[in-house]
Design a protein around this nucleic acid. Structure first.
Lengths: 236, 236
DNA sequence: GGTCGTTATTTTGTATACAATATGTATTCT
DNA sequence: AGAATACATATTGTATACAAAATAACGACC
């Protein structure tokens, strides 16, 4: 009945991951050891082990003599993200189509079910976590231990970027989410059919959609504007 | 004069990394906490933190209630390696050419100097470590935080695979090493010239050479053989 | 009033004692 | 003799006490 210290440790790790992915803990926020020890009823030793583990996975960063904080998400890292993501995502999808087991495909369908649910309920955090889970499973399917570390780091920041930018206020953005959901279905189909070409193509499409969604925020509408009219339409 | 505990901790981490890369600690070998504490004069707490850190970087793997061991290097991981390496190496080289700082280029030249030295002295461990350092610097040059985790993992196993297979017994293999060294020079030149195309091409060439060298051991000469003659030429 | 230097307080890092788990050994029973 | 169980030993995981470092608070001096 009562959970062991190991369980509480796992719970702590899960909580921290969730909090980072959903921006409940903002990039750069520093974590209070004493407080977390209290909250999760573990001593500092296992807590700090969790810190180191999550630091290794890219959730946190540790600075000597100055505690742990949530990994930054600067404009530099954003640039890196846009450079690396298409390549890694494509490779992972391709391998996923080649290597997925029946069991993993079932898990993926379940995750997609939850993602649909998240779209209905409309909670940004739920959506980000469900989407994260979906892609994490594709990573497991690919099962390449050399690709996974980078892929999982990308997923962390993809979730955080999505949390920042995906608040579907316009009709266009809501529609994009629906399309993303359909792409997930197509991805499942491609993987089930072992069609690596289709999977790679879908990865690219899915990525482009995601990228567009983000660009709707970062560079709102100014690109095609003739010179001299810029001030009028620049958004708040 | 006397080094602090922090220094000894760093020394321990460096020692473990070196030992893993050079196969002084073989894949799968388990590490004795007590013994290492004794040897490096640190208590178990910092030792275990180092373990977790190195596990995060891919050097070690930790199993619950059963200590740390050196990461495995199975045939499965070898396959993954050959799949992922060309893509990641190429991307890193390309970015390195784009982003390298003058200081980093100096460091790379220094590393290459040491690599040359290693070729002369002929120690496999020295060669592996120097080569590892060289490529690590290219990783730093690329400076993409999403690519680096995978890249560094690849470098770990590249060193270990090289230690396994590169014992330049035949003339051909010795010559390959010389060529690899020349490619390093060409890589430096391409990076210095900011020629990303050349850098990417060199990455591919360098990889193919490395791959061939490995294949000389894994699949010695049997490929082009007509059926019925296989037994005669299969090496010991 | 502001800056620098000193001292308290808090926070982080390490050592060690203790608890829990796994491993090895001996003994018993068939 | 061989298998199985109970016990002893060793190893791993956690809590806590202590040390070192950083931050904050205070006061002296300009």
């Amino acid at each position: 009945m009562k959970d062991s210290v190991g369980d509480r440790k796992a719970g702590l790790a899960a909580h921290l991951k969730r909090s980072v992915l959903t921006l409940a803990l903002e990039p750069g926020a520093d974590l209070d050891e004493a407080q977390l020890c209290e909250a999760f009823d573990v001593s500092r030793t296992p807590l700090r082990e969790v810190f180191r583990e999550l630091a290794g996975e890219g959730y946190l960063s540790l600075r000597l003599n100055r505690g742990a904080r949530v990994s930054d998400l600067s404009h530099t890292t954003l640039r890196d993200f846009f450079l690396a993501a298409p390549m890694i995502y494509g490779a992972v999808m391709r391998l996923a189509a080649l290597n997925a087991t029946a069991q993993q495909i079932e898990a993926l369908k379940l995750a997609q079910f939850d993602f649909r649910d998240a779209l209905r309920t409309g909670s940004g955090a739920h959506r980000a976590l469900a989407n994260n889970r979906f892609h994490q499973i594709t990573g497991e399917m690919a099962g390449n231990i050399y690709l996974l570390p980078s892929f999982n780091r990308l997923l962390i920041d993809h979730a955080r970027i999505a949390m920042t930018f995906y608040q579907p206020q316009t009709q266009q953005m809501a529609q994009n989410l629906t399309e993303a959901c359909q792409q997930h279905d197509a991805i499942i189909a491609a993987i089930e059919a072992r069609d690596e070409g289709a999977a790679a193509q879908l990865a690219e499409d899915h990525w482009n959609l995601s990228r567009n969604q983000i660009e709707l925020f970062v560079m709102p509408a100014a690109l095609d504007m003739p010179m001299g009219e810029l001030s009028r339409k620049t958004p708040a």
